[in-house]
Every structure is written in structure tokens, then in C-alpha cells.
């Protein structure tokens, strides 16, 4: 598989779009999973998948075979996700910020709120996990997702995101602390 991928990368670099199509077909699902963990919603994840491959295509000549092609894609995807969730957070902060008056205006508008009836236990835990992940800062979430779900080492993550090992370590520690704070009460009830 890796040899196959290597030659597809070579051919894609030489401008063979069929070869690039192969790479897209091969890696899309993995990138989607990563992107969903990062952004927490499907539409953003689709956006990340698409943008990742478009960027990868433009930057193919910058890819060095030192890392595997999938790691390289992960790097592009996680950096773009990071930008996207930062933008979203900023957006939300702005909605939340401001005077009471503004809040009143915004709150007078009915938004879709989750109904109380769908609080079956399993769903509740999963919802709480999603909420807890949403509480993380973009940097914390990115580092945590790459470590926890994708199994990248702290050193690799630091290099990918350009944040260095120490900062990455602290992002992960803070992420775990926040997750514990938000999830321990829920998990506690379960046992």
C-alpha cells in the first residue's frame, strides 16, 4: 500500500490528476474522522476534507517524503480545522459578549434547543462528551484530538502545529483537566 501511495504521490506531483484522485479516494475517510473530532460538526468536517485536498494539491511540490503522505494530510487538515474552530469561537464569543441589551435581543430569537425528552442515558453521555470537547480552546482541542484519537506523539503534534513539544504537552494537560471537570460528574453517575 505504501509503495503504491508513494508512486501515486510522485505521479500526482507530475500533474497526473488521476493519481491525485486515487489519493483522495484513499484518505478521505480518515481525514473526515479527524475533521469531525476537531470541529464537532459534519458540515465543518466536510469543509475541512475538501479544503485539505485542495490545499494538498496546491502544495504537492512542498511535500517531502520524510513523513508519510497521510501524516502530511493530517497536518494540513488539523491546521485548517484549527483556523476554522478559532473563527467559529470568535464568532460565538462575539455573540455572547456585549451588554445585556444585546443579549436580550439575541435571546429573544428562538434558536433550536435540544428537547428534554431525548435524554436517554447513552445519548446524554455522548452529548456531554461533545459539550466537554466544545469547552476546549481550539489549541487544546487540536492537540488533544491528535493525541487521543489519532495516536500522534506529543512531539509529532508539536512539530505539525509548529507549537513545540512543551506547549503541546500543556495544551493536552489542560484539555484533560477540563474534560475531567466536565465529565467526572456524568461518568460518576453511571457507575
Amino acid at each position: 500500500m505504501e509503495v503504491e501511495a508513494g508512486s501515486a504521490v510522485e505521479r500526482a506531483r507530475a500533474g497526473d490528476s488521476d493519481a491525485f484522485r486515487l489519493l483522495v479516494e484513499q484518505h478521505s475517510r480518515a481525514i473526515f474522522r479527524l475533521a469531525f473530532r476537531m470541529t464537532g460538526n459534519e458540515q465543518d468536517a466536510e469543509d475541512v476534507v475538501q479544503e485539505t485536498f485542495l490545499r494538498a494539491y496546491k502544495q504537492l511540490d512542498r511535500y517531502e517524503a520524510r513523513s508519510s503522505f497521510s501524516t502530511w494530510l493530517f497536518r494540513i487538515a488539523s491546521n485548517y480545522s484549527l483556523d476554522l474552530i478559532r473563527m467559529r469561537k470568535r464568532h460565538e464569543d462575539k455573540r455572547e459578549r456585549g451588554s445585556d441589551e444585546e443579549r436580550d435581543i439575541l435571546q429573544s430569537i428562538p434558536l433550536d434547543t435540544p428537547g428534554p425528552e431525548r435524554m436517554a442515558y447513552g445519548t446524554e453521555v455522548r452529548d456531554r462528551v461533545n459539550e466537554a470537547l466544545n469547552e476546549l480552546s481550539p489549541q487544546e482541542r487540536t492537540a488533544f484530538v491528535l493525541r487521543h484519537f489519532e495516536g500522534l506523539s506529543i512531539e509529532e503534534i508539536g512539530a505539525s502545529l509548529g507549537t513545540g513539544t512543551n506547549a503541546t504537552k500543556h495544551s493536552i494537560f489542560r484539555a484533560v483537566q477540563k474534560l475531567r471537570k466536565n465529565l467526572e460528574p456524568v461518568v460518576g453517575h453511571a457507575r
Binding site: R33, F36, R37, V125, R126, V129, L133, V176, L179, L183
Partner: peptide
Amino acid sequence: VLNTVDSAPV
């Protein structure tokens, strides 16, 4: 807690 995080569905 960390194992519970895995239950978040994709």
C-alpha cells in the same frame, strides 16, 4: 474519563 471520551460518535 478518557475512555468515556471515546464514546463520542463520528
